[in-house]
Design a protein around this nucleic acid. Structure first.
Length: 339
DNA sequence: AACTGTCGCAACCGCTCTCCT
DNA sequence: TAGGAGAGCGGTTGCGACAGT
């Protein structure tokens, strides 16, 4: 698309008949703010004339919503905001306005800019595709980036002590992000043929606490498998492909939830051009209303989250994992680590 | 000091959606 | 139901600020 902006009117003498474009002056801002404070914006198209501005209504609306609105929050995004954006983006994609509704005081434009200038790069550095939120396909690269992936996992593990509706959605998305990351790590460990010595040796760069974290996740999922739910079927150094990362939920008595959609599970080697992240598959099935208003008590994410909670016990398995990280006496790894 | 490259962000464009008649 | 107007959204661009040479 060739969209050359008209030469900016900055510093130009304005023809009264020409709608001004480009940066807003403090005087224009003041006029707009004064008018909206007094009369409200009403019709944006009519506003500029009424407010004495030589701008189009659209420009006035954008200036107000993105910059002049009194409830706008300025300054750097916090770590928590950053994580919320990543999580919501994994669910909603580039629906910036939908994401913005979960971040009071932040505008869609600001979030979009922050994503494009910071978060995209950050995810790429961690070896994660910012579009699909899946690790990039090169397995050796993935292993090389394992420390960053695990760091991202820890980063995602925000406390979830406030279960208001907005945070529910974020928490669900956080769970998914974690599952997604682990799933892809496990894919690498279960590739057929088995990981090479070289590939496994890369694990040596992963801090030992992260080994414990991985191990605990795998152990817990093996327990799920033992319960007849499918589990992830992890067998260290096994020579077969990983059968299914997610539990087979179709037999679960959860009729109120749209859970059968998980029948289609991403495989270790998606067909080129048909790579659908599990998160995206879920997104396609989610009632948009549930996502946007965050008030539903029966979202797919909740169903999945409840399932996880049920199977892992009252305390989240992630808390369990973290406890093991603190407790240095946890079980040794079931696979060899090459120096 | 001058030049060049990179980054961040405000603002624009064009398309889509929603509402009304 | 069709069509027009207004509003909203996502993608993109231009430009100032800053860092590096």
């Amino acid at each position: 698309m060739s969209k050359k902006r008209e030469p900016t009117s900055k510093g130009m003498m304005e023809d009264e008949n020409v709608i001004k474009k480009g940066p807003w002056t403090p005087e224009e801002d003041q006029k707009l703010v004064d008018y909206i404070r007094t009369f409200g914006h009403g019709s944006w198209r009519a506003l500029p004339k009424l407010a004495g501005l030589n701008r189009c209504g659209k420009s006035c609306r954008l200036r107000w919503t993105n910059y002049l609105r009194p409830d706008i929050k300025r300054g750097k995004f916090s770590d928590e905001e950053e994580q919320i954006i990543i999580n919501l983006h994994s669910v909603l994609g580039n629906k910036w306005s939908a994401i913005a509704t979960h971040l009071p005081g932040r505008t869609d434009n600001e979030i979009k800019n922050f994503w494009n200038t910071h978060l995209k790069k950050k995810l790429l550095q961690m070896g994660i595709d910012p579009v699909t939120h899946r690790p990039r396909t090169d397995h050796l690269n993935l292993l090389a980036n394992l420390p960053q992936l695990l760091a991202a996992m820890n980063f995602s593990n925000l406390p979830m002590n406030s279960w208001d509706n907005a945070l529910r959605l974020q928490s669900d998305a956080t769970q998914l992000a974690k599952i997604q990351l682990l799933q892809n790590i496990i894919q690498v460990l279960n590739t057929s043929p088995p990981p090479t010595m070289e590939a496994l040796s890369l694990l040596g760069s992963v801090p030992v606490n992260d080994h414990h974290q991985l191990y605990e996740y795998l152990r817990l999922n093996s327990q799920l498998e033992g319960l007849g739910n499918g589990g992830i079927g992890f067998v260290p150094n096994s020579s077969h492909n990983i059968p299914s990362t997610f539990p087979n939920l179709q037999d679960q008595p959860m009729a109120d939830h749209n859970i059968n959609q998980f029948n289609s599970i991403p495989t270790a080697d998606p067909i080129p051009g048909q790579e659908f992240s599990t998160v995206n598959q879920m997104e396609n099935k989610i009632n948009p209303t549930d996502v946007s208003n965050g008030s539903s008590t029966s979202t797919t994410f909740e169903a999945w989250g409840e399932f996880m909670d049920d199977e892992a016990g009252d305390s989240s398995q992630w808390t369990d994992i973290n406890n093991h990280i603190i407790d240095q006496s946890t079980s040794p790894l079931p696979w060899p680590i090459f120096p």
